[in-house]
Design a protein around this nucleic acid. Sequence first.
DNA 1: AAATCTGTAACTAATAATATTACAGTAATG
DNA 2: CATTACTGTAATATTATTAGTTACAGATTT
Lengths: 135, 135
Amino acid sequence: MNGRFAISMHILTLLTKANGDWVTSDFIAGSININPVLVRKEISNLRKKGLVVSREGKNGGTMLAKPASQIRVSDVFLATNQGTVLGNARNSPNPDCPVGRQINRHLDSLYQEAEEALVRNLGTSTLDDFVHRFD
Amino acid sequence: MNGRFAISMHILTLLTKANGDWVTSDFIAGSININPVLVRKEISNLRKKGLVVSREGKNGGTMLAKPASQIRVSDVFLATNQGTVLGNARNSPNPDCPVGRQINRHLDSLYQEAEEALVRNLGTSTLDDFVHRFD
DNA sequence: AAATCTGTAACTAATAATATTACAGTAATG
DNA sequence: CATTACTGTAATATTATTAGTTACAGATTT
């Protein structure tokens, strides 16, 4: 797992607080304290997922594509999460062993169910709810 | 996240199927298809958590410390999982930004709630249930 | 005493995550 | 229409994490 979910939440929080203004990747990068290119990459992903819109050129930037109350935290999770949260399973168990032959299949279904529970939980709050936690 | 949970589940599945026999780390390593030292490292952790017991010397090995029906999958998760599942947050946001100053605290509580949901889900099945999925 | 295990430490290799550089493209503005 | 201030993205470099290996001491059975 990497820090992409945290970065995306940070970006979206700033955009929510900007309240309709275009926010630059440099400003965002300054708040997260990471390289602006990483911010733009992450914004590029959020844009593909329909969560934000960007404008190029001078006075350009990014803003939310829809009200923060219509973005669930789980949407952000699903937008940034590439694989499973429980492990990346780059193993290749022994196919000659009855356990090795089947385990990945069983683990996968276990992972899937658990991840669904996690996503359900994240689906109970919106970006707006999250931003309200801030002073 | 790494593959430690998968490795531990694999180890414990083999121990369950061994049904009270001592199982060697070499045999386990052969099924998982990884280095025996990694297996012993992982077993060392499971032993500390009270899930398995080991015996040194010839004819030694490892077995379950208690019946598979008394080990919940969440026990294994909690035994192998070091930090959070949602990200490793090795960022250090700008303390001069109102959002940067607070975000890690708010993300942490979000993570915690979500992870609790995940653990609750993993707590609904035992190692025995898992092993029963195999043919 | 020999054989067969575990238990670790120390080190190396591979992979993944993050950061950086560079530069083309777009739009506003004087 | 040149300048400025942005986005977008590719290519590369660096750092961190994970996995694998070697080496060897200690335990226990036979």
